[in-house]
Write a protein that binds this DNA or RNA. Structure first.
Length: 195
DNA sequence: GCAATGATTTACT
DNA sequence: GTAAATCATTGCC
């Protein structure tokens, strides 16, 4: 079951980030469908320094200001694609970064895209890696999650709250005390959660 | 127009 | 543990 628009319009981006754990992210790129179960997310609000939108609307982050339910993809460190889900209403730049997934559909395709011989646990255990495995690139920036290129489905299985761990976010030390917010969510003991 | 830099990964010391 | 890879976006000249 595909997630409804209402899911992305919730005003509490942290709650959405937590809810996305256990959901399945699908992509259809070059005629190949691949999918992964989301095991790690991070919430970003434009009210704190960790977010790209903190300083206001720019050409790159304009997508974040759209209504919830679109993809925000951008290039980081010149090499890695980062995949985010835009949430909240138009004009409010909240987003959830998908940091890691567990391969579900098209594992062979993912291995091919990632190139080198690696074990399955390294296939999608990080934001740059999962984007490459699922064929996500900047062409998907701004795409609606209600079309057939990229979308998220609810697998039906509910996740015990004991399986959800929150911690501070990674790689944004420059954000000062905002870097300490416990807005990173992971599934406990899952092998694909990034280090 | 140009220099600085990052929501990371990978390889090497 | 540390550093290089690598480029679009940003901010300042």
């Amino acid at each position: 079951m595909r997630l409804t628009p209402e899911f992305y319009l919730d005003k509490n981006v942290v709650k959405i980030a937590r809810s996305l754990l256990g959901k399945t992210l699908f992509t259809r790129v070059d005629g190949h469908v691949t999918a992964g179960r989301i095991v790690e997310t991070e919430a970003y609000s434009w009210k704190e320094r960790g977010s790209h939108a903190f300083k206001g609307k720019t050409g790159r982050n304009a997508v974040m200001f759209e209504e919830g339910g679109v993809a925000y993809v951008y290039l980081c460190y010149g090499i890695h694609q980062m995949f985010n889900v835009v949430t909240n209403h138009e004009g409010i730049a909240d987003a959830v970064l998908i940091r890691a997934v567990e391969p579900v559909v098209g594992i062979e395709i993912m291995k091919e895209r990632r190139g080198k011989v690696i074990n399955e646990f390294q296939l999608t255990s990080g934001p740059g890696k999962l984007s490459k495995a699922l064929g996500i690139d900047r062409n998907l920036n701004g795409k609606s999650l209600f079309q057939n290129e990229v979308w998220i489905e609810d697998g039906g299985a509910s996740l015990s709250s004991k399986k959800i761990v929150s911690s501070k976010r990674i790689g944004i030390d420059y954000a000062g005390e905002d870097a300490l917010l416990p807005w990173r969510f992971t599934i406990k003991d899952n092998l694909w959660v990034s280090a």
